[in-house]
Design a binder for these strands. Structure first.
Lengths: 187, 187
DNA sequence: ACGGTCATGTCGCATAGTGACATCACTGCT
DNA sequence: AGCAGTGATGTCACTATGCGACATGACCGT
């Protein structure tokens, strides 16, 4: 049997990204992905829950970063969440516009992948809400601050991808947060 | 060949709901659903995109109601969206607590179904945003008002299902909207 | 009665995803 | 060295999803 593969998970994720970009998500089989990584289909399924997961292997880091930032903050709930997303923007998305754009174009081309993306953002939000409650924030406030913060990030993210990249994602997050305040205040 | 089945879609949706409740989503095959409705597996796939869709056949009505309410309103964007969800709460969810609770318990028991629910809420939100923009609201404001309104509805919905049903969903929507204003204002 | 739709059934197929078992590299112990 | 155990991987077989292609039979208008 082939020796244990160094970083099998990473190699599979990379192979999946390449193939999805080359032929599209639906036109790529799990066997294809495994073959490109020099592994078996069964091994893929031991490292990833399903085919879609191969595109979301970075979300653990995202969640860790986000939760840590929330736990470290002492600001008001909504400000905390927005600041945490800004932190993520700086630490994870800086200088990655093109990489992120490619990945996002793949996701946007497949309804299945969009579904999974929504699920990931939802579980991110749930983790943030838990971190907020650990700070003594009541549940409803935690949920509302969390979801509003996620909305701000989504809008800022879309704007970042859309425009050439003149401003940083972190700046855009701050801007959009201000706009949300205006909208809910009754603009 | 059997005569054309009256309301085949509705019968399949009902059969699916029953079976999901009896044995769970994963333990129910599409062939089972079709058999209970007296139809063939292939017919199911002609009427529903996939197995999950059978649980979401009501979402077209939801979207229509929501969009109509948005189009008819002239209030500020966020108020418009909240009012539209209140309208939906009154017209579609009144006196359906137990039915809705059953359906939701099925959805909550399967990650796949939760994913699909998120997608449905997302497409609902997209439709609302389009309706808002048709009223001349700029895109970012429309998105933020739309997403914030959806958040309010989700939280109110969860609270409605959680508590015995003393207050109506419409009332809860109004309450949560007020709380969201407080949270984004900096509670 | 005849031809044309159209919903449905039948058949076959590629693929997703999983359980069970075999295999081999590496580790530590004797 | 040798040997048992562990853990990652491969192999095989299987169920279920979802879809293309074609057949069939009920209904409709003329």
């Amino acid at each position: 049997m082939a020796r244990w593969q160094p970083d099998a998970r990473g190699r599979l994720a990379a192979a999946a990204l390449e193939l999805f970009a080359e032929r599209g998500f639906d036109q790529t089989t799990v066997t294809d992905i495994a073959a490109r990584a020099g592994l078996d289909k069964r091994t893929f399924y031991r490292l990833f829950g399903d085919k879609r997961e191969a595109l979301f292997s970075g979300s653990e880091l995202l969640e860790q970063t986000l939760v840590a930032a929330v736990a470290a903050s002492e600001a008001a709930p909504f400000d905390t969440v927005v600041a945490a997303y800004r932190r993520v923007a700086e630490e994870i998305f800086t200088d990655r516009l093109e990489t992120v754009r490619l990945r996002q174009s793949i996701i946007d081309s497949s309804p299945e992948l969009k579904e999974r993306e929504l699920r990931k953002m939802g579980s991110l939000a749930a983790a943030v809400a838990v971190a907020l409650r650990a700070r003594g924030v009541d549940e409803v406030t935690a949920t509302l601050a969390t979801e509003s913060g996620a909305t701000v990030f989504r809008v800022a993210f879309a704007r970042w991808l859309g425009s050439g990249g003149g401003s940083s994602l972190a700046e855009l997050v701050a801007e959009v947060a201000a706009e949300l305040r205006a909208v809910t205040a009754g603009a």
